[in-house]
């Protein structure tokens, strides 16, 4: 499966008639073998870099199809190719926009914008919801549930410094790194109210951080009321319960 594996690298020589060869063909059967050669353009690019894993694609297709449905191999490969084409299609449009606005980084918003422009309007709303939930949860993970906006601004700043390629997947429920605290806005949100939305066990886990936060600024509770309202209907720790 891995192109650089010994079996495969020893494949071109004279071992062709061996059964092993057939097996290898099967694993690489798809676009890589089938039309990597014909496509030619993929010179040097490994097949596994050009397409989504076929198992994932099939799993998603199966969600839609009735259980008795069968999928031919060429249909699987075609869908697999279509997904890559889709990503390129949208990215190309998003990238054009970035260039017009003289920005270097393609953001999630650029991607959403491109989808809307290219006819995938139906996707924009669910994806926007998906993204905002993702941000909230990621923000919560770092202990920043009430400052997600400022927090993301800070992240963005850091991201551009580091080349913007990092994903920032912090381990769950870990207090934020000390440097971030220095970049917080002068006011601090009322943490004791925040606790109302937090699962007790999670709150205990985050106790260290919240202790710090409330000592820095228990003063202004009015400044943050809008964000409080936004969070009222959303339990950021729902995924971590039970």
């Amino acid at each position: 499966m891995v192109p650089l594996s010994p079996t495969e690298s020893s494949l071109p020589p004279a071992n062709a008639p061996l059964p092993i060869d057939n097996n290898d063909r099967k694993t690489t059967e798809r676009p890589g073998g089938g039309h990597g050669s014909g496509g030619g353009g993929g010179s040097g690019v490994r097949e596994q870099d050009r397409y989504m894993p076929i198992a994932n694609v099939i799993r998603i297709m199966r969600r839609i199809l009735p259980t008795h449905a069968k999928i031919s191999d060429d249909a699987k490969e075609t869908i697999q190719e279509c997904v890559s084409e889709y990503i390129s299609f949208i990215t190309g449009e998003a990238n054009d926009r970035c260039q017009q606005e003289q920005r270097k980084t393609i953001t999630a918003e650029d991607v959403l914008w491109a989808m809307g422009k290219l006819g995938f309007d139906d996707y924009v709303e669910p994806l926007t919801i998906f993204l905002s939930r993702y941000r909230e949860i990621e923000g919560d993970r770092a202990g920043h549930s009430l400052r997600s906006e400022a927090f993301y601004l800070n992240r963005r700043g850091n991201a551009s410094n580091t080349g913007g390629m990092d994903y920032y997947y912090g381990p769950p429920l870990l207090p934020p790194p000390p440097p971030t605290l220095g970049m917080l806005p002068p006011y601090a949100p009322p943490h004791h109210q925040a606790m109302g939305y937090v699962d007790p066990s999670a709150a205990a886990a985050m106790g260290t951080y919240y202790g710090v936060g409330s000592s820095t600024g228990s003063g202004s509770s009015s400044a943050n009321s809008p964000s409080q309202a936004n969070l009222a209907g959303f339990d950021p720790f729902a995924p971590f319960k039970n």
Partner: peptide
């Protein structure tokens, strides 16, 4: 450059 959130979307 690609924002980390773009692949997530």
């Amino acid at each position: 450059m690609i924002s980390g959130e773009a692949p997530i979307v």
